[in-house]
Simulated assay, not measured.
Amino acid sequence: MAALEELQERWRYLYQEYLPALAAAKDTAQKQWTVHLDHCFARIVLDNAIGVDSPWTEKIKSPAIKNMTATQLQSAIDLAEKLATGEANLFELDQKSLQLRGKKEKKRKADDASGKVPTPKKSKKDATVSSYFLPSPKSPPGQKEEKDNAPDETLPKLPVKSDVDMSVQLKRIEDSSITAFRKQTLSMLCQIPRGRYSTYGAMADWISNNSHKTCARAVGNAMRNNPFAPEVPCHRILAGDGSLGGFKGSWGEEGKYAMLKHDLLREEGVRFDSKGKVKGPPFRDFT
C-alpha cells in the first residue's frame, strides 16, 4: 500500500471508528465528549488542523480524504490522536470550529455542586459502537445493572471447532471490506494457537514495532463486532493483567458474557487461578 493510502486509511479509522468508540465508552481522555458522530469528529479535526482560520472546505475540495496532501493527512491524524489521548481538548476545538463557521457556540453544561459533569444522553448511533472487545471504563460503585447477574436465555451458543482452517479465515478477512487496521488485528488473532491466549498490549507492541505506532485500546477497538467469530478467535485476547478482559461489549468477570468467554477458553485448554488470573505467559510470537 502506498504511503498516501496508508495515511488515508489511518485517518478514516480514527474519525470513523476510534474516536466515536472512545466517546461511546466515555473514555477518560476527555472530561466531556461533546460530540459522538464520525462526521462531527471529522469537522472538528479538519477545521482545526487544515482550515485553521476558516472552515476546511475553503482550503480543500470535498471529500477531504481524497483531496488532502500527505502533510495535511498527517496533521489531521496527529490532532485526532491528541484528542484520543487527552492532549487536545475536544470542547475547545469544537467551539473554535463552530466560530469559524459562524454558528452559535454550544453552551457547556455547568458542573453541579458535587463537581460532576452531567453525563450526555446516549443516541442510537452510540449504541452501534458497542464492541466485541472494546476496553470499557470500570463501572462506578453501585451502578452495575442487576440483569448482568441474572440468567440469560438468549446467550449465544458459539461452537468452537478444533479443526478450523486458518488459511480460509485469513482469506475471509482479506476479502472483506473492513479497514486495513482491522484486517491486521484480526489476522493476528489467527496466529494464536488453540489453548493459548494473548493480550491487547502484546498485539499493540508487535504492531508498533513492526508496522506503525498504536496502543492496546486501539487494538481492542479494531476487534469490535468481529464478523468472523468464533473461527477468528477474539475470545483468546485477555487484559494485560491476566484477567478476563472484555467480551461482546461487556467487561470483566461481572460482564454479561463472562461465562461464555470462560467456556470458550476452558474448552480450548486455557486455565485461570482462584483469583481469576490466567495461567501461563501470553502468546507474543506474531509474524
Rank of each mutant, 00 (worst) to 15 (best):
I207H: 14
L170F: 01
R271Q: 12
A150Q: 05
P118M: 10
P55V: 03
Q30S: 02
E146Y: 09
F41T: 02
N209H: 06
R266H: 13
A218H: 07
M188G: 11
K125G: 10
E92C: 00
L238Q: 08
R271T: 15
D53E: 11
V278N: 09
S162C: 00
T199E: 09
H262L: 06
L4V: 12
K82C: 04
M203Y: 08
K125P: 00
N89I: 00
S187G: 15
A127R: 11
E5R: 10
P63V: 05
A2V: 06
P282V: 14
A21T: 15
K106G: 02
N210R: 04
D175Q: 14
L7A: 14
A218V: 04
E231G: 04
P151N: 05
K248T: 04
D38S: 14
T154P: 00
E267K: 15
K103S: 10
A218Y: 06
D78F: 07
Q32G: 08
L93F: 08
P63K: 08
L264V: 10
L186H: 11
E58Y: 10
K147V: 09
M203D: 10
S54D: 05
I237C: 08
I173S: 15
K171M: 01
K277M: 03
R182F: 00
G242M: 04
A25V: 09
S62D: 11
K261Q: 13
R182H: 05
P135K: 05
P156G: 12
I178S: 01
P151V: 07
R284D: 06
E268D: 12
A127W: 06
T69V: 02
E146G: 08
T34H: 11
N149P: 00
Q191V: 06
G240E: 09
S97M: 01
V168T: 15
T71K: 09
K109C: 04
A25F: 05
G195K: 07
S167E: 12
S274V: 08
L22T: 03
R266G: 07
T34L: 07
P135M: 01
E253Y: 11
T128Y: 03
H262C: 01
F181P: 06
P135L: 00
P227S: 10
A113L: 07
D152G: 10
T128I: 05
M166C: 04
R101S: 08
L189S: 14
Y13D: 14
S167T: 14
K107T: 15
K122N: 03
N89T: 11
L244Q: 06
K106A: 08
Y197V: 06
A218I: 03
K31Q: 07
P159C: 01
L7N: 13
K109F: 05
Y132M: 01
K121E: 12
E6S: 14
S62V: 05
W251S: 09
Q191C: 00
K61R: 12
R182T: 15
E92K: 12
M166D: 03
A150E: 04
D285T: 15
A222W: 01
K183W: 04
L90K: 08
R172A: 10
L189K: 11
F91L: 00
P55G: 01
Q95V: 02
Y15I: 02
A110K: 09
A229T: 15
S167K: 12
D152Y: 05
P281L: 00
G276M: 05
G255Y: 12
Y15C: 01
F228Q: 03
E231A: 11
D285Y: 13
T199D: 10
Y18G: 11
A42D: 07
A64T: 13
F228C: 05
E231R: 09
G276Q: 02
R43H: 13
